Amino acid sequence: MFRTLMTVTVAGLILTGCNSLPADSTELAERTAPLEYNTVVFTDYNLSRTWNDGIRDAGRTYRLSVENHGQRPTETGTTEVFAVLRNHTDFDYRIEVRTQFFDDYGVPVDARPTWQRSTIPANSVSAYKTLSTSTQPLKYRIEVRELN
């Protein structure tokens, strides 16, 4: 009787584990979402992630979040893009950020956007800013990843 009960319990735990994904799974909502313009995305899932299932149920974990982002014209006719990022941790967070600009057809206009390093102080906010090289109307996508 005890052996049967143990077998059923172990089988139940195994089946539950097979249907659930751990929080660090690569099957995350951010990785499968369609490409959006005029937005900020975390390409490193450790910074901000959402999962549908897991050992501790569905949820959201974030170390950084976006407080504000947008674009504005400069005096020279180019576009300045900015993002205000918030650090929710108790330590300084080192990140890399880059912006990719797109034309009205969704074609990238910068050959190779470069990563810029930044540190966001603990429990604080920091602004990232960059300028386009074109005077035409552009869409943007700001990408943020953890600096290792």
Rank of each mutant, 00 (worst) to 15 (best):
M1K: 11
F2D: 10
F2E: 07
R3N: 09
L5C: 09
L5G: 05
M6Y: 09
M6F: 11
T7Q: 12
T7P: 01
T7F: 14
V10H: 07
V10T: 13
A11Y: 10
G12P: 05
L13M: 15
L13Y: 14
I14E: 06
I14Q: 10
G17I: 05
G17S: 13
C18Y: 14
C18I: 14
N19T: 13
N19M: 13
S20H: 08
L21I: 04
P22G: 05
D24R: 05
T26P: 03
E27R: 13
A29T: 09
E30W: 06
R31W: 07
T32C: 07
T32G: 11
T32M: 12
E36T: 08
N38R: 10
N38I: 08
N38H: 09
N38C: 10
T39E: 09
V40K: 01
V40H: 01
V41Y: 03
V41F: 03
T43R: 07
D44Y: 02
Y45A: 03
N46A: 10
R49F: 02
W51V: 06
W51E: 01
D53S: 12
G54N: 06
I55M: 12
R56A: 12
D57G: 03
D57K: 03
A58W: 07
A58P: 02
G59K: 07
R60N: 13
R60H: 15
T61E: 09
R63T: 00
V66E: 08
V66N: 04
E67Q: 07
E67K: 06
N68H: 14
N68E: 15
H69L: 08
H69G: 04
G70Y: 07
Q71K: 12
P73K: 15
T74R: 15
E75V: 13
E75I: 13
G77R: 04
A83H: 02
V84K: 04
L85R: 00
H88M: 00
H88T: 00
T89H: 01
T89E: 05
D90G: 00
F91P: 00
F91T: 01
Y93F: 11
Y93L: 03
Y93Q: 03
I95G: 00
E96P: 01
V97K: 01
T99W: 02
T99R: 04
Q100V: 13
Q100G: 11
F101H: 08
D103F: 06
D103T: 10
D104F: 14
Y105T: 15
G106R: 10
V107I: 13
V109T: 14
V109C: 07
D110E: 13
D110A: 10
A111S: 11
R112T: 13
R112F: 10
R112V: 14
R112S: 11
P113T: 06
P113I: 05
W115R: 08
Q116A: 15
R117D: 06
I120S: 00
P121T: 01
A122N: 00
S124I: 00
S124L: 01
S124P: 02
S124A: 15
S126T: 06
S126D: 04
A127S: 14
Y128M: 07
Y128P: 04
Y128D: 04
K129C: 12
L131Y: 15
L131C: 10
S132R: 05
S132M: 05
S132T: 08
T133I: 07
T133N: 14
S134R: 12
T135D: 09
T135W: 05
Q136P: 01
L138E: 03
R141Y: 05
R141N: 12
E143P: 02
V144I: 12
V144K: 00
R145H: 07
E146C: 02
L147A: 14
